[in-house]
């Protein structure tokens, strides 16, 4: 596929995604995904911090900033996964377009990437929202001096880390697409389970050092662990990690995830074609 055709496809997918999403018949669903979820995440962070401070007797604003940034950037993981998990069934059974997208030469995976970019945009909106709200509630409301220098953010590092991270989460999303194409019902809970595991082991709120030895190994194998370290570093600078080493690890784990994700998707598409699932609408 020529690069211009790829770009056209991605552009259309982003546009369609935006149209479909801003048209949700159920405002409740909309509210859950865009507002309640990020805010709930924020409150959990506040809660964990308060308990931690209470138990240890020390109020450490540095720890708060650590949790706060980690939690906020985790939104990208959830949003991209949810977006990519929903789209196959919707496009196959509801809009009946999946098979036709599949038949336009070479565009399905780029279409999926475009739709995932919608997840990225949603996540960015949520991110700004929760950053703002967090500062409002915790810094101004509760008086926690969050040690964040808003003007000193390492934007270059942030951009690079974010870009690699997004590629990585999309690769995980392709695995979800593959699973959904082979199943007859939307796997609603799947992104939640995977998200939960990544949340626990990726060092979002629990430091990997607090995990049992196997948990630490697992955590070290996850790209999300390095992603969050880089996000934190770009905001907080001194986090006790070597940023270059973490960048290399992020890149390496991302390459592996992309290879696995795309291979899985390919195999899933082959199976779907073999079993006649690409346009499956009803049960046989």
């Amino acid at each position: 596929m020529a690069i211009t055709a790829v770009l056209r496809t991605i552009k259309q997918a982003v546009w369609i995604g935006w149209k479909v999403e801003t048209n949700w018949a159920d405002p409740l669903v909309f509210a859950i995904y865009y507002l309640i979820r990020p805010i709930a995440g924020l409150l959990i962070v506040g809660f964990i911090f308060l308990i931690g401070s209470f138990v240890s007797g020390i109020v450490d604003p540095g720890l708060f900033a650590f949790l706060f940034i980690g939690n906020n950037f985790f939104i990208y993981v959830t949003q991209i996964m949810i977006m990519m998990s929903m789209l196959i069934h919707e496009d196959r059974a509801h809009y009946e377009v999946l098979k036709h997208i599949y038949l336009t030469p070479g565009s399905l995976q780029w279409y999926i990437v475009g739709r995932a970019l919608n997840g990225v945009m949603n996540a960015s909106v949520s991110l700004v929202l929760t950053l703002g709200l967090g500062v409002l509630i915790f810094q101004f409301g509760m008086g926690i001096p969050i040690p964040l220098n808003w003007l000193g953010i390492d934007l270059g590092l942030l951009a690079v880390g974010l870009l690699v991270g997004i590629v990585c989460f999309m690769a995980i999303g392709f695995i979800l697409c593959g699973i959904n194409i082979m199943t007859s019902k939307v796997q609603f809970m799947l992104p939640e389970y995977i998200g939960g595991i990544l949340y626990l082991f990726g060092g979002v709120v629990f430091l990997p050092e607090l995990l049992p030895w196997w948990g630490q190994h697992f955590s070290n194998a996850l790209p999300i662990t390095y992603f969050l370290r880089i996000m934190r570093f770009s905001f907080l600078h001194n986090t006790g990690f070597d940023v270059h080493v973490n960048l290399v690890y992020l890149a390496a784990t991302t390459v592996i995830t992309v290879i696995v994700g795309l291979a899985f998707f390919r195999v899933a598409m082959f199976k779907a074609r073999r079993d006649g699932l690409i346009d499956k609408k009803e049960e046989y």
Partner: peptide, 29 residues
């Protein structure tokens, strides 16, 4: 090739007829 199946309406209900065609035209490059 292309495929047209009767009794199906592939496309996004929220888009207009021409927008739906535009979408596919772009996927075809």
């Amino acid at each position: 090739i292309s495929l047209v199946s009767g009794g199906e309406t592939p496309g996004y209900g929220i888009l207009s007829a021409s927008e739906n065609l535009w979408f596919f035209s772009q996927l075809y490059g």
